[in-house]
Simulated scan of single mutants.
Amino acid sequence: MTYRRLPSLVALRSFEAAARHRSVTRAAGELSVTPGAVSRGVRALEEELGTPLFTRAAAGLALTPAGDALFTAAREGLDRIAAGLVTMRQAAPRRRLRIGAYTLFASRWLLPRWGRLRECHPELEVELETSADPLELVPGVFDAVIAVTDRRPRPGLLAMPLVPIETMPVLAPARLPALDWRRATLLHSRQRPDDWARWLAGANIEGVDASAGPRFESIALALDAAAEGLGVAMAIRALVAQDLATGRVAAPHPHVRRTTRHFTLLHDASREDDPALAALRGWLAAEVG
């Protein structure tokens, strides 16, 4: 077998969508990710290939000669992969579901309920894969994904909002009585760098440097640090309910910042009547109430 040295499929999908739309923003809308995620994918591809793929033009992005050649190849390749997957799915009986989900959502929301899914639907064989990278949670690569959306998924997708993204601060209960916001250590997540500035503004708390404090790779690590008494972390309310109930962390302020985004189940609309996916949707609907 010939060895093929290929770039990341995630980066190629970002590039192909940006090249087709001539816009990072429109590509992000199609892929249900942020423009920053698309830009990082394209930048990683350019660094790996050692050549620029786009130039800026008045009408938007313009392809370089190298970018134009790669776009043609990537578009044809992705179209062939998509066609092959459709053929395979039509021929194979549906016995398993391969689900992609955010790591934090899977560990804090899905897994505590996993036993109930198995009790309700013992016939389902669910393979759960997690990632903190939104570009890896792509409908089509999985049977379904649980990703963050603003209720405007691209055409052709069925979207089922599950829980809202609502942010609130948490800290170790022992630190609660002595909390002084102007002296507090704010713990940040690189996944959501603007949460503190937005929450402080909504809570009308002034005199606090929203950019100060240590940064962690994930929300989960920031929450762990808060539980250990290292500072105040910004949490997503639906994913910290168990920690609050058990007293692992406490809420130092009543303000909860509501956003327009949700953790959302996404899959191809053409598979709406798939019995396995219908069973999963029904179970999720019961869980979210």
Rank of each mutant, 00 (worst) to 15 (best):
L239R: 11
G247C: 07
T259P: 14
Q242R: 15
T259L: 10
M234A: 03
A250D: 07
V249F: 06
A250Y: 10
V256Q: 07
V249W: 06
A238F: 13
R257C: 00
V232K: 05
A250E: 08
V249Q: 05
L244Y: 11
V249H: 06
T259G: 10
G247Q: 03
Q242D: 15
V240A: 11
I236A: 14
R257D: 02
L239T: 06
R258V: 05
T259N: 12
G247F: 05
Q242H: 15
G229W: 02
R258K: 14
A250R: 09
V232E: 02
R237H: 14
A233D: 02
P254N: 02
A235D: 04
R258Q: 14
G247Y: 04
R248K: 14
G231M: 01
A233R: 02
A226N: 00
A225Q: 01
A238K: 13
L230V: 02
A227D: 01
P252L: 06
P254A: 03
A227M: 02
L230G: 10
E228Y: 08
M234P: 09
A233M: 00
I236K: 15
H253T: 00
T246R: 14
L239V: 05
A250L: 05
V249G: 06
A245W: 12
P252W: 07
A225M: 00
A225I: 01
H255A: 07
A227E: 05
H255N: 02
A225Y: 03
H253E: 00
H253K: 00
V232Y: 07
R258A: 13
A235S: 06
V256E: 05
A225V: 05
V240D: 07
H255P: 08
A241K: 15
R257E: 10
V256S: 04
A245G: 11
A233K: 01
P254R: 02
A251V: 08
G231N: 02
R258P: 13
A251I: 02
L244N: 10
V256R: 13
R237N: 10
I236G: 13
V240L: 06
L230D: 11
R258I: 00
E228W: 08
A227L: 06
A235K: 07
I236D: 15
A225R: 09
E228M: 10
E228H: 12
A233F: 02
A238E: 15
Q242G: 14
H253G: 01
A251S: 14
R257T: 00
A235G: 04
D243G: 10
E228C: 08
V240N: 08
A226E: 04
R248G: 09
A251F: 03
G229Q: 04
A227K: 06
A250N: 08
L244I: 09
R258Y: 08
R248L: 13
E228F: 09
V249I: 03
A251K: 11
G247W: 06
Q242Y: 14
A233S: 00
V256L: 08
A226P: 04
V232L: 06
P252M: 03
A235Q: 04
M234N: 09
R248Q: 11
H253Q: 01
A251T: 08
A235C: 04
A227W: 05
G231I: 03
Q242M: 13
V249T: 04
L230C: 11
G231A: 00
P254K: 01
G231W: 02
R258G: 14
M234C: 09
M234Y: 03
